[in-house]
């Protein structure tokens, strides 16, 4: 692996090559990154921490795919803030400073019966390996994929290929069914016996999926996207309240029982740095324009 000299602390350090960058839909990119140590051990549901360069933040991203033989790990991200905008400018063949993992506990995969997988927005990426593993374990997999509008859909065929049934929903009705993911979820729960629901997406979507399944008493697994720093249990930034107990999303999760999660606390903690995120982005834009 390549070692490059980094500017701030002097020393040489291993860096990670982007083997492939793909722009999937507007603002959503795929990176296939050369990280053999991570690829060798990656399991469904785990995440990595990426840092773009010496000045970058450490950001967690769920693993979307991996290839142990090739030594590669695939992540998918949406441009929302400074780090993801900066990442979005990188190209195939570029490097990132850090790519740490596989972190967190793997998903619990078993033969449950019928499992509904609900993916909101670009969370179809982290959902893919989970749906695939559930299917392989002998479950009947019904997937629901919800996006805002038609031009944001990707991996529809991929998700369909690991599902017994796929329902696509758009907020504005520009493609397939119009509405919210919780509507078909409720219909399925009413019409057949479901053993488990897995919901991944924006916190508010996961919260309402959990609310939808609660009356049916169907175990609902969610993957929490808390703010993290080290990702190894060192700082407690990602603490969440689950069943009244404080847990660290990085080491106790990222997957938890959605019925036990204190969603309001999670969402409040996700807003801690709203002001700073804005400041950081404006600062970066001003600098970026100069270049």
């Amino acid at each position: 692996m390549l070692k490059l000299k980094l500017d701030v602390l002097g020393g040489e350090k291993q860096v990670y090559k982007i083997l492939l960058k793909q722009n999937l839909v507007p603002d959503v990119h795929l990176f296939k990154v050369e990280a053999p140590d991570v690829a060798k051990k990656a399991r469904t549901g785990q995440f990595i921490i990426i840092r773009i360069d010496e000045r970058g933040e450490r950001i967690p991203m769920t693993i979307a795919d991996w290839n142990g033989q090739e030594g590669s790990v695939t992540i998918i991200f949406m441009e929302v803030g400074t780090t993801t905008r900066r990442l979005g400018l990188l190209k195939t063949g570029d490097f990132v400073a850090d790519f740490v993992g596989p972190l967190g506990l793997p998903s619990h995969i078993d033969k449950f019966g019928t499992v509904v997988c609900v993916a909101g927005g670009f969370a179809v990426a982290p959902m893919m390996p989970i749906a695939r593993a559930l299917k392989k374990a002998g479950n009947k997999v019904i997937s629901i994929m919800g996006v805002r509008r038609k031009n944001l859909i990707f991996w529809e065929d991929e998700l369909r290929s690991v599902s017994d049934r796929l329902i696509v929903i758009t907020d504005d009705g520009s493609y397939a069914r119009k509405g919210l993911v919780t509507e078909p979820l409720k219909e399925i729960l009413e019409s057949e016996k479901v053993s488990r629901v897995v919901a991944i997406g924006p916190s508010v979507m996961m919260k309402f999926c959990a609310k939808t399944t609660e009356p049916f008493e169907v175990k609902t697994i969610v993957s929490l996207n808390s703010i993290m720093v080290d990702g190894t249990g060192m700082c407690g930034c990602c603490r969440v309240s689950v069943g009244g107990e404080t847990k660290f999303a990085c080491v106790d999760g990222p997957e938890f029982d959605g019925h036990q999660v204190d969603w309001d606390l999670l969402m409040a903690r996700q807003r801690i740095y709203l002001d700073e995120e804005k400041e950081s982005f404006e600062h970066w834009q001003a600098q970026h324009r100069k270049l």
Partner: peptide, 10 residues
């Protein structure tokens, strides 16, 4: 050194 460095702190 925020915002020269990307990581914020309150």
């Amino acid at each position: 050194l925020f915002p020269e460095y990307d990581t914020p702190v309150k």
